[in-house]
Design a protein around this nucleic acid. Structure first.
Length: 199
DNA sequence: TGGCTGATGCGA
DNA sequence: CGCATCAGCCAA
């Protein structure tokens, strides 16, 4: 069942980051449906998080979608190469987001392998935010899309992840964020071989 | 361990 | 405008 807006609009981006583990991210692009189970996320606490683009309620052309009500996508280009896919959460004007970092491919495997130019299904197909976007065909054309629509959406397929199955650790690549750099807001499914490499 | 790659956002 | 910066990936 597709997650509805009430899932995204809760006032707890850390909980949403954990709740997204075990959910399924789908895209339908040029008629091809691809998807996988979310195994790794990072939460960004908006205005009070120095690692977030929206720290201090900074508003720019790029961050504007973060101020929309929860339930839309936020896709931005990182290091000039990688499209990174995020989910916007909370109510209007509260710019919080969850970065989806890794999925286990489950639907449309042939298409995913073709997009990634791989022949074998393993971690390096979608185990990292840049690879994940490429695998599912996500680019900046998919910025600001409604996640209850039929291009990019997330489903609950009744996979239950308990608190004990969740690994917490500091987020990746946010050394510049000073006191927020160490917050353990990166979540992975314990024991999954599909997450980006452990540190 | 570096090189690649280019939009972004800041200051001049 | 210019220019430093960046929520990564891959080959070695």
């Amino acid at each position: 069942m597709k997650l509805d807006l009430s899932f995204y609009r809760r006032d707890d981006v850390l909980q949403i980051g954990k709740d997204l583990l075990g959910k399924y991210l789908f895209t339908k692009i040029n008629g091809e449906i691809t998807g996988g189970m979310i195994v790794e996320t990072e939460s960004y606490m908006g205005a009070v998080d120095k690692a977030a683009h929206s720290y201090g309620n900074r508003r720019t052309e790029r961050t504007e979608v973060m101020y929309q009500p929860g339930g839309v996508s936020y896709v931005f280009l990182c290091y000039g190469i990688h499209s990174l896919f995020n989910v916007i959460t909370n109510e209007k004007d509260i710019p919080e987001a969850v970065l989806i970092r890794a999925v286990k491919p489950t639907h449309g495997i042939d298409t995913i392998l073709r997009r990634r130019n791989k022949t074998k299904l393993q971690r390096n197909v979608a185990g990292g935010p840049g690879m994940l976007s490429q695998a599912l065909g996500i680019d900046r054309n998919h910025d600001g899309l409604n996640l209850t629509g039929d291009t990019v959406w997330i489903e609950d397929l009744d996979v239950k992840i308990s608190e004990n199955d969740i690994l917490r650790s500091p987020r990746v690549g946010v050394d510049y964020a000073q006191e927020d750099a160490d917050n353990p807001w990166r979540y992975r499914i314990k024991g999954s071989e599909w997450t980006s490499p452990a540190k």
